[in-house]
Design a protein around this nucleic acid. Sequence first.
DNA 1: TAGAATGTTTAGTTATTACTAAACAAAATA
DNA 2: TATTTTGTTTAGTAATAACTAAACATTCTA
Lengths: 174, 174
Amino acid sequence: MNPLEQTRAHFIQGMSRISHFWGFPKAMGAIYGAIYLSPTPLSLDELVQQAGVTKGAVSANVRQLERLGMVHRHIEVGQRRDYYIAETDFWRIVRGILQERQQSEFDRALASVGESLALLENVRGDEAEFARQRMAAMQSFFSALDGLVQALLKLESLVSLRALSRLVERAGKE
Amino acid sequence: MNPLEQTRAHFIQGMSRISHFWGFPKAMGAIYGAIYLSPTPLSLDELVQQAGVTKGAVSANVRQLERLGMVHRHIEVGQRRDYYIAETDFWRIVRGILQERQQSEFDRALASVGESLALLENVRGDEAEFARQRMAAMQSFFSALDGLVQALLKLESLVSLRALSRLVERAGKE
DNA sequence: TAGAATGTTTAGTTATTACTAAACAAAATA
DNA sequence: TATTTTGTTTAGTAATAACTAAACATTCTA
């Protein structure tokens, strides 16, 4: 294995770890890593070889990566084979992930708290009142969080993360 | 089961779901939910009953919750029993979680990419050059992300999430 | 049209994690 | 000091998720 291949392997392993850390399958990270490092579009078979997982796993994970907007499937007409290329705009990727996770389960959290609150609608007593207050506070936090994510999602580009950091820093000093 | 208890159960179930969604054990969410809704500090045995898990699970998860700063152990002198109360400042909680997750595995991501880059140090060729560029781009993104998190961690209070959202919105329009 | 190439689906396996049950340790109380 | 109360640890179990291997479906090519 030449130095370049070694590096690639190391990088892919790292991506696999990161992927797992963020709550995604390890294979997903490995596959993205392989595609990301390749100057040319990769086929499924090449991915099997480079990421070290089976066809089935590549097929499934590449689809998920596509849904998140992390890779793009490049189909040529009159060509059976698919090729994959990496999305390199990380802000797009972040958006893709936020959207995906958002729509699915995030609102459900809000809904769940809302339901609980509704259940207390006409229950009297100190304990009920206390619970109501707490739940309302949590609801408010969740909806504010949601608002922040929505605001972020509206950003075209990541303005530059660093600029955003400075913004936050300044906000903190006020 | 009276209406209040029903609500509590519903809320606890919701927390359990959310917890799982964010990559934490379900019992952890359930336990936090129970403590959060209680106007008085709860003992381990009460948590066993309310969260519906065993002593062992409560013991382990409550410790984790403490590490994250989500609950506080209230020990009275000359008292064997521990009591737990909820942290209700969600910004504190967010910080606790970010710090915990940050320190542990986030920097390691950065390190991993750095290592890969180092491996390519004196490898020549177009492919190596390409890989180098890509890895550098990713490294830069990660470190910017890290910067943002650091900036957020420095914030005393959450200024108000909504204010932050507006800030982001304004930033996007420029 | 037969065979090869390619991607998807599915059934089964493996690995991981979170939990339970029970033993244990430590401290309070009788 | 013996017993009870309380929290922790540990060994084993159950649940879940991710992957493999192989069957399958579809499309291209000879």
